[in-house]
Amino acid sequence: MASPAFEEIAETFDFLDDWEERYRHVIELGKAMPAMDPSLQVPATRVEGCASQVWIMPRVEEGRFDFQGDSDAMIVRGLIAILHALYAGLPPREVLGVDAPAELARLGLDEHLSSQRSNGLRAMVERIRLLAADAG
């Protein structure tokens, strides 16, 4: 089951009439996301497989998975914000149980992202799963 934050995003996507509005909403989500400290944007936190530069830094606090993320592309920052809504606050073991492709398909992302962006999104999901597995 998706988090309340992700459900809110899904409801907003249902309300928006066309993909251009949804695309703008993804960008707005990225703009609203806190910036990642540049000192954390190092090779160890970089996500390979993304056309844009993407960094994800995990943390587990009180048994809950969370991460900071950033990108040099606004649409990708928005995708990171969506992934944050999907995963943040879950125990690391539950992160592994999230069916990210199915949840993201509810937003129509699989139909409207370029193949490069889709590959990058898959790389980010895989990286988050690996980080959660290491944390759990």
Rank of each mutant, 00 (worst) to 15 (best):
A135Y: 02
K31C: 09
M57G: 00
E94N: 10
F67Q: 03
M1V: 12
H25R: 11
G69S: 08
G30L: 02
Y23Q: 05
Q41A: 07
L16F: 07
E20C: 01
I75K: 10
E62S: 14
L121W: 08
E48C: 03
E8H: 07
A133C: 10
M1E: 12
E111W: 04
A2Y: 05
P91M: 08
S3N: 10
F65L: 07
A2E: 08
P92F: 08
G136Q: 05
F65A: 02
S3F: 00
L16N: 01
A44V: 14
S71V: 05
S3V: 02
P91F: 07
R77A: 02
D72R: 10
S71D: 02
A5M: 05
P43F: 05
P92K: 11
A135H: 03
M124L: 09
D99E: 15
R117G: 07
L131K: 01
V47I: 10
G63A: 06
I56P: 00
A10S: 01
A133M: 12
E7H: 06
E94H: 05
L109G: 03
F15G: 10
L113P: 00
G69K: 00
I9C: 01
D72I: 10
Y87Q: 07
D37Q: 06
G108L: 11
E111K: 15
R46N: 07
R106W: 07
S71N: 10
L90A: 04
V47Q: 06
R93Y: 02
D66H: 13
A102Y: 06
A10Y: 00
E11G: 03
A81S: 12
N119C: 08
L16H: 00
D17Y: 07
R93W: 07
Q53A: 13
P58Y: 03
A105H: 04
M36K: 06
D14K: 14
R77F: 06
L40A: 15
D37P: 10
G78L: 06
P92Y: 02
A73K: 05
E48G: 13
Q41Y: 01
G136P: 00
A132T: 01
A88V: 06
L40Y: 04
G89A: 11
L79C: 06
R93T: 14
L86K: 05
G69A: 11
S114R: 14
M33L: 15
M57Q: 13
M36P: 11
Q116M: 14
E7I: 09
P34Q: 08
L130E: 15
A73C: 09
A81G: 03
Q116W: 10
M57I: 09
Q53K: 12
P92W: 00
E28V: 10
H25P: 00
